[in-house]
Design a protein around this nucleic acid. Structure first.
Lengths: 162, 162
DNA sequence: GGGGCCTAGTTGAAGAATCAACCACGCTGC
DNA sequence: GCAGCGTGGTTGATTCTTCAACTAGGCCCC
């Protein structure tokens, strides 16, 4: 049963912050999606998956680790990896020591794709997002963003010390 | 033709800010979606559409204005309004003076639904997001968020003066 | 050494988003 | 008064995402 006392509605600044976040949330991925789609027929999520693999040691990761690093469900990832596999960018292999685990490997073609796309993508991220901000803004946003991520998922990989 | 000089890769803080934003972007809507889905079988986007109508004068808006206020394409909105219409929460009516325009009206049942859901939703927003932040964070985020929105869409409705 | 539970991953069906094609109306200029 | 263009909106096909169900291997412990 929910508490029936009068809820604390958002004040003006909370509302501003909330509306801005929701708007960014729909606008930014949409803009990057269309950019990436015209550049290389892939979505921001596809790109993220390839990018995470390309940065991993040996260019492979267990599916569950890849899911964590792309903030996706295992189910979603599995479907997407199947698609990327059909395009020859990723391969699935069994894990040598734990038969439950599947590892996703970036192929040479996959690596070539991301190497080709990365400069344009970084430029788009700057153009659509970072260039709007001062250095101080970037710092503030990193601090605030990590707080929020920590509340949503205390064990999130971007918060790992290393 | 794209500029072929070496791209400016993200520095550590830019990367932190970017990764945090992308993570929030997938985690937050997903969490609110499941909350709203168990509370009332609707998505965050459905909720937003109803909320925007409930706050509008006369509880109706032209489709294109509603699309702007929910940061959606007209196509997406049209599909969703059809769904909400089937549930009896929204009605479509022709505009009296411009036959091109359709207005979406919130019905009594629609209003009742949002009145019922709003307190829980606000609580969830606080719980998942705002409660992680200090007053200063909220202020910073509002400022930074609006800058980013302005870059993505200079005419965005949340930036309108009034 | 076998029952029960947890972790890792896949699959198919159902619902949602996007894209391109399209219709209808309004405005402008001739 | 009608040709042409821009605006407002809808629709259907395709693609994506989610959800629930399921397989299968590992681990604990009696």
């Amino acid at each position: 049963m929910r508490d029936m006392t009068e809820p604390r509605w958002l004040n003006a600044d909370e509302r501003r912050a909330w509306l801005a976040l929701v708007s960014i949330n729909t606008l930014l991925p949409a803009a990057l999606d269309t950019k990436l789609h015209t550049a290389g027929k892939l979505s921001l999520f596809d790109y993220t998956v390839l990018a995470m693999l390309s940065e991993a040691e040996g260019r492979f990761l267990p599916m569950s680790e890849l899911a964590a690093r792309s903030s996706a469900s295992l189910s979603r990832l599995s479907h997407v990896v199947t698609k990327l596999q059909k395009r020859g960018w990723v391969e699935r292999r069994p894990h040598p020591h734990d038969a439950r685990v599947t590892t996703a490997h970036l192929t040479e073609e996959g690596m070539a794709t991301i190497v080709e796309l990365a400069p344009g993508h970084v430029e788009d991220v700057r153009d659509l997002f970072l260039d709007a901000l001062t250095e101080q803004d970037v710092l503030d946003l990193a601090r605030i963003g990590e707080k929020v991520v920590g509340r949503l998922d205390a064990d999130h990989w971007i918060l790992r010390e290393n």
